[in-house]
Structure formats: structure tokens, C-alpha cells
């Protein structure tokens, strides 16, 4: 994938605006837009942690690239990966 592409994409047609991804993004990459959906506002800050993708209940977020040694979907909790609560 080319690096200039947004690291995460939100499928607005499936997003239900639950705010989970926004809450668990450690870098404030995502925010709620006027339509009440999640949207990418700070793409350059994304650390490809996968929190948003794993926790979206609506399959509405997809990473367009992965870390080389990808954080596997398994093994530890969101908290242990530093996604944390704010």
C-alpha cells in the first residue's frame, strides 16, 4: 500500500457512531463528524495499533497497512497494548 493513503478507512455506511473507536484510539486519530460517524482527522498520528479495527462492533474500520511485525490480533488485551482509557 502507498504510504500517502490514510492508514485507516471508515466505512460510513456501516458505522453506527458508537464512539468506541474514538475512545480507544491512543492518538486521537479519529473523531465524530457532523453526520455522527467516525472519521479520520489526524491520519499522520496513527501508530497502526489496530485498537479501532478490533473493537469496532460494525466491521466499519479497516487498516490499509500493517506494522511489519504486525501486532497480532491475539495474545494481549487492549489495555496491555497501551490503548487504554481516557
Amino acid at each position: 500500500m502507498p504510504e500517502d493513503k490514510a492508514p485507516v478507512v471508515v466505512n460510513e455506511a456501516w458505522c453506527k457512531g458508537c464512539d468506541i473507536c474514538i475512545n480507544y484510539c491512543p492518538k486521537k486519530v479519529l473523531a465524530r463528524n457532523a453526520a455522527g460517524k467516525a472519521s479520520v482527522v489526524k491520519p499522520e498520528a496513527c501508530i497502526l495499533c489496530e485498537n479501532c479495527e478490533l473493537l469496532c462492533p460494525d466491521f466499519a474500520i479497516t487498516l490499509t497497512r500493517r506494522r511489519a511485525k504486525g501486532l497480532s490480533a491475539t495474545s494481549t488485551s487492549v489495555a496491555q497494548k497501551g490503548g487504554g482509557s481516557r
Partner: peptide, 14 residues
């Protein structure tokens, strides 16, 4: 069949 029927924020999708 998407979007699915579950309510916003329902844990079932996760």
C-alpha cells in the same frame, strides 16, 4: 446483509 441489525455499540459485533 450489512450493516447488521445489532444496536450501536453492541458487544456482539466485537
Amino acid at each position: 446483509y450489512m450493516p447488521h441489525i445489532w444496536c450501536p455499540g453492541c458487544g456482539h459485533g466485537i
